[in-house]
Amino acid sequence: MKRNISFILNGSEISIETDPALRAVDVLRQDLGLTGTKEGCGEGECGACSVLVDDTVKLSCLMTAAQLEGKKIVTIEGIARGQGLHPVQQSFIEYGAVQCGFCTPGMVIAAVAFLAANRAPTREEIRDAISGNTCRCTGYQKIVDAVEDAAQKMREGDSDG
Protein backbone atom coordinates (compact mmCIF):
# COMPACT_ATOMS: atom_id res chain seq x y z
CA MET A 1 0.00 0.00 0.00
CA LYS A 2 2.81 2.41 0.87
CA ARG A 3 4.93 3.68 -1.95
CA ASN A 4 8.03 5.73 -2.41
CA ILE A 5 7.34 9.30 -3.46
CA SER A 6 10.15 11.67 -4.40
CA PHE A 7 9.88 15.42 -4.82
CA ILE A 8 11.64 18.67 -4.08
CA LEU A 9 10.42 20.19 -0.84
CA ASN A 10 11.47 23.73 -0.03
CA GLY A 11 14.58 23.35 -2.12
CA SER A 12 15.67 19.91 -0.95
CA GLU A 13 15.10 16.61 -2.71
CA ILE A 14 13.24 14.23 -0.48
CA SER A 15 11.90 10.75 -0.74
CA ILE A 16 9.19 9.39 1.54
CA GLU A 17 7.39 6.12 2.08
CA THR A 18 3.71 6.80 2.35
CA ASP A 19 0.26 5.82 1.20
CA PRO A 20 -0.09 7.61 -2.15
CA ALA A 21 -3.83 8.04 -1.58
CA LEU A 22 -3.33 10.21 1.47
CA ARG A 23 -4.03 13.90 1.11
CA ALA A 24 -0.95 16.01 0.48
CA VAL A 25 -1.88 18.34 3.36
CA ASP A 26 -1.76 15.41 5.80
CA VAL A 27 1.56 14.17 4.48
CA LEU A 28 3.09 17.63 4.79
CA ARG A 29 1.72 18.27 8.25
CA GLN A 30 1.75 14.92 9.95
CA ASP A 31 4.48 12.92 8.19
CA LEU A 32 6.87 15.76 7.43
CA GLY A 33 6.05 18.01 10.41
CA LEU A 34 5.46 21.08 8.25
CA THR A 35 2.48 22.36 10.21
CA GLY A 36 2.76 25.85 8.76
CA THR A 37 0.43 24.65 6.03
CA LYS A 38 -3.02 24.86 7.61
CA GLU A 39 -6.34 23.21 6.92
CA GLY A 40 -9.50 25.25 7.26
CA CYS A 41 -12.16 23.40 5.33
CA GLY A 42 -10.80 20.29 3.64
CA GLU A 43 -12.72 20.94 0.44
CA GLY A 44 -10.94 23.67 -1.42
CA GLU A 45 -13.00 26.63 -0.25
CA CYS A 46 -10.77 28.55 2.16
CA GLY A 47 -7.23 28.49 0.77
CA ALA A 48 -5.54 27.91 4.14
CA CYS A 49 -3.73 24.84 2.80
CA SER A 50 -2.22 26.60 -0.21
CA VAL A 51 1.25 25.53 -1.32
CA LEU A 52 3.29 26.22 -4.42
CA VAL A 53 3.51 23.32 -6.82
CA ASP A 54 5.97 24.10 -9.61
CA ASP A 55 5.47 27.79 -8.74
CA THR A 56 1.67 27.62 -9.04
CA VAL A 57 -0.71 27.90 -6.09
CA LYS A 58 -2.42 24.60 -5.34
CA LEU A 59 -4.69 23.52 -2.53
CA SER A 60 -2.98 20.70 -0.70
CA CYS A 61 -6.26 19.45 0.79
CA LEU A 62 -7.38 18.55 -2.75
CA MET A 63 -4.11 16.86 -3.74
CA THR A 64 -3.02 13.33 -3.05
CA ALA A 65 0.46 12.36 -1.95
CA ALA A 66 0.92 10.69 -5.34
CA GLN A 67 0.53 14.08 -7.01
CA LEU A 68 3.63 15.34 -5.22
CA GLU A 69 5.81 12.96 -7.23
CA GLY A 70 8.49 14.78 -9.18
CA LYS A 71 7.16 18.22 -8.32
CA LYS A 72 8.80 21.25 -6.83
CA ILE A 73 6.84 21.98 -3.66
CA VAL A 74 7.19 25.15 -1.61
CA THR A 75 5.35 25.49 1.68
CA ILE A 76 5.25 28.52 3.96
CA GLU A 77 8.36 27.19 5.68
CA GLY A 78 10.24 27.59 2.40
CA ILE A 79 9.12 31.11 1.55
CA ALA A 80 11.74 33.04 3.52
CA ARG A 81 14.88 33.91 1.57
CA GLY A 82 17.86 32.48 3.37
CA GLN A 83 18.10 34.24 6.70
CA GLY A 84 15.72 37.01 5.72
CA LEU A 85 11.97 37.11 5.28
CA HIS A 86 10.29 37.35 1.90
CA PRO A 87 9.07 40.92 1.29
CA VAL A 88 5.49 39.65 1.51
CA GLN A 89 6.16 38.27 4.98
CA GLN A 90 7.91 41.46 6.02
CA SER A 91 5.01 43.59 4.80
CA PHE A 92 2.44 41.35 6.49
CA ILE A 93 4.18 42.04 9.79
CA GLU A 94 4.63 45.76 9.23
CA TYR A 95 1.11 46.40 7.96
CA GLY A 96 -0.80 44.41 10.54
CA ALA A 97 -2.04 41.83 8.05
CA VAL A 98 -1.79 39.10 10.68
CA GLN A 99 -4.34 38.52 13.39
CA CYS A 100 -5.13 34.96 14.42
CA GLY A 101 -2.71 33.96 11.69
CA PHE A 102 -4.36 30.72 10.66
CA CYS A 103 -5.07 31.97 7.13
CA THR A 104 -1.71 33.74 6.96
CA PRO A 105 0.47 30.96 5.46
CA GLY A 106 -2.02 30.37 2.64
CA MET A 107 -2.49 34.09 2.15
CA VAL A 108 1.29 34.65 1.95
CA ILE A 109 1.62 31.82 -0.56
CA ALA A 110 -1.14 33.32 -2.72
CA ALA A 111 0.45 36.76 -2.55
CA VAL A 112 3.94 35.50 -3.36
CA ALA A 113 2.70 33.68 -6.46
CA PHE A 114 0.61 36.66 -7.53
CA LEU A 115 3.43 39.17 -7.18
CA ALA A 116 5.74 36.93 -9.16
CA ALA A 117 3.40 37.46 -12.11
CA ASN A 118 2.27 41.04 -11.44
CA ARG A 119 4.89 43.47 -10.18
CA ALA A 120 2.66 46.55 -10.06
CA PRO A 121 -0.84 45.50 -9.13
CA THR A 122 -3.78 47.74 -8.31
CA ARG A 123 -5.72 47.20 -5.09
CA GLU A 124 -8.53 45.63 -7.12
CA GLU A 125 -6.12 43.16 -8.70
CA ILE A 126 -4.78 42.29 -5.26
CA ARG A 127 -8.31 41.78 -3.95
CA ASP A 128 -9.04 39.46 -6.86
CA ALA A 129 -5.80 37.57 -6.35
CA ILE A 130 -6.50 36.74 -2.72
CA SER A 131 -10.25 36.19 -3.11
CA GLY A 132 -9.77 32.45 -2.89
CA ASN A 133 -8.30 32.77 0.59
CA THR A 134 -10.73 33.25 3.43
CA CYS A 135 -9.71 35.41 6.36
CA ARG A 136 -12.18 35.77 9.20
CA CYS A 137 -10.23 38.25 11.31
CA THR A 138 -8.97 41.16 9.27
CA GLY A 139 -11.58 42.29 6.79
CA TYR A 140 -8.72 41.98 4.25
CA GLN A 141 -7.86 45.69 4.16
CA LYS A 142 -4.51 45.36 5.90
CA ILE A 143 -3.71 42.30 3.82
CA VAL A 144 -4.27 44.35 0.67
CA ASP A 145 -2.13 47.13 2.19
CA ALA A 146 0.61 44.61 2.89
CA VAL A 147 0.60 43.07 -0.58
CA GLU A 148 0.65 46.54 -2.11
CA ASP A 149 3.66 47.41 0.04
CA ALA A 150 5.39 44.13 -0.76
CA ALA A 151 5.00 44.84 -4.47
CA GLN A 152 6.68 48.18 -3.92
CA LYS A 153 9.49 46.59 -1.92
CA MET A 154 10.03 44.00 -4.63
CA ARG A 155 10.13 46.64 -7.38
CA GLU A 156 12.68 48.60 -5.36
CA GLY A 157 14.64 45.39 -4.84
CA ASP A 158 14.66 44.87 -8.61
CA SER A 159 15.98 48.34 -9.33
CA ASP A 160 18.59 48.03 -6.59
CA GLY A 161 19.81 44.81 -7.95
Binding site: R29, Q30, G33, L34, T35, G36, T37, K38, E39, T75, I76, E77, I79, A80, L85, Q89, F92, I93, E94, G96, V98, G101, F102, T104, P105, V108
Partner: peptide, 20 residues
Protein backbone atom coordinates in the same frame (compact mmCIF):
# COMPACT_ATOMS: atom_id res chain seq x y z
CA UNK B 1 3.89 45.60 14.95
CA UNK B 2 2.36 42.68 16.72
CA UNK B 3 4.91 40.46 18.38
CA UNK B 4 3.19 37.25 17.28
CA UNK B 5 3.26 38.18 13.61
CA UNK B 6 6.74 36.81 12.86
CA UNK B 7 6.04 33.25 13.96
CA UNK B 8 2.72 33.35 12.13
CA UNK B 9 4.06 34.57 8.78
CA UNK B 10 6.78 31.95 8.79
CA UNK B 11 4.43 29.12 9.72
CA UNK B 12 6.37 28.26 12.85
CA UNK B 13 3.67 29.16 15.38
CA UNK B 14 2.06 26.00 16.68
CA UNK B 15 -1.67 26.11 17.24
CA UNK B 16 -3.65 23.45 19.04
CA UNK B 17 -4.35 21.81 15.69
CA UNK B 18 -0.63 21.55 14.92
CA UNK B 19 0.43 18.97 17.49
CA UNK B 20 0.96 15.36 16.46
Amino acid sequence: PRLDALSKVTGSERYSADFY
